[in-house]
Amino acid sequence: MRIIASGEIDACLEDRAVLETLRHAFRSNTIAPRTSPIPIDRPDHLTGTLSLQPAWTDFAAQGDVSRGYVGCALSLDLPEQPGLASSLYLLFSGSGGQPVALLDGMRLNAWRTSALHALAAGYLSREDTSRLLVIGDDPRLPRLVSAYAEVRNLSSVLLAGTSQGTRSRIGGLAALRDVHVGETGDIRTALDGADMVCIAGLDHQAGHLDALAALDPPAGCHIDVLDPSAPLPELLLQEARLFTSDLAAPPLTGLEWAADMKELTRGSKAGRRYYGQRTLFLPGSGTGLADHALAAHIFLKT
């Protein structure tokens, strides 16, 4: 069994190939059952969780087991270290059942998340999208912005509430060599010129929640929600055309979801219906299908 560390994952991947791997995965018949997090009792009445995200090739539909894999993402989140969940991905041979690879789940997560959101943006944002506004901070943002640049010809990236370290990493991206990268503290004004908005982790002390409560993107804007806990305005959720990764388990109930990634990639449902329509993408918690596809791609590339 090979152990594939973060450096090896970065060395063998590039945005275009990862985007196409996920596009193919959503069009495939890969089986990805949902599982519930397993509670782990800790001292002082605290509880951690162990989450499993299994997936495997549809061997029955395929008619043989000579190709394909069985995989499972394992994520451990303990209350003593909030926000620092550790994860691994275990990949088995579909023919013999032997484990073939153990991958760094954190790095797999960064590549999968960025590709998922960028793939959605390729279907949902306007083709002439060039001005990106990022609100908040997240260590995956440099990877995500690089993937955005693969699906849209960006000319400007404005960062609001993003840490100095993240800003420096984004500014140094090869994919943004000819792109203006700046920062702003005036989110409301920056919104007026944005073609696409990414909502990342928000700083409760910096007034970002107030700005988000009044979030009113211009007509035709695509809103990509990286932070699933972001409190989105009810009016925006009612007016925008909503999309998620898997309609079998949408992230919010009581809303009218237009389509998921399977329907978008297969062309069975439309994305943006007209130029001035606002679209919003909020993924669900299930990542088994995308993780399985990307882990197999990495295994074959290393």
Rank of each mutant, 00 (worst) to 15 (best):
T244M: 04
M261D: 10
A61M: 11
R67K: 15
R169F: 01
S86A: 13
R2P: 00
R140M: 01
S86E: 14
A25R: 00
A101K: 10
H180C: 04
A293I: 01
V197Y: 03
L191T: 04
Y123T: 03
F281S: 01
I4L: 12
A55W: 09
R126S: 12
A101Q: 09
D128N: 12
S86T: 15
L191M: 14
H222C: 09
A259M: 01
A219E: 12
V157A: 02
D203A: 12
S168C: 02
D216H: 11
W56S: 02
I170T: 08
E256I: 05
A219C: 05
D186G: 05
R278K: 13
R34Q: 05
L84E: 10
K301E: 07
A121K: 01
D192L: 07
T166C: 12
L91G: 10
Q205E: 11
I9R: 13
E263R: 10
R140S: 08
T184Y: 01
A219N: 06
D138R: 04
I3C: 13
E239D: 11
A160V: 02
S93V: 01
A101V: 10
E239S: 11
Q277R: 09
E234A: 07
L22K: 10
P142S: 13
L158V: 01
A60N: 05
N109A: 14
A61C: 06
G48Q: 03
C221L: 08
T265W: 00
R266G: 09
E20R: 15
P82W: 12
H208S: 04
H222F: 12
P250H: 01
P39D: 07
G122V: 13
P251K: 13
P218C: 06
A295I: 07
L280H: 07
E14D: 14
P82E: 03
V18L: 07
D10K: 08
R177I: 04
H292N: 12
N109D: 14
G201R: 11
A213V: 03
I199Y: 05
V181E: 04
P43F: 05
A101I: 11
L264F: 03
A110L: 12
G172P: 12
S285H: 11
D138G: 10
S75H: 02
D104A: 04
M1T: 14
R272W: 05
D64F: 09
L289T: 13
A160F: 02
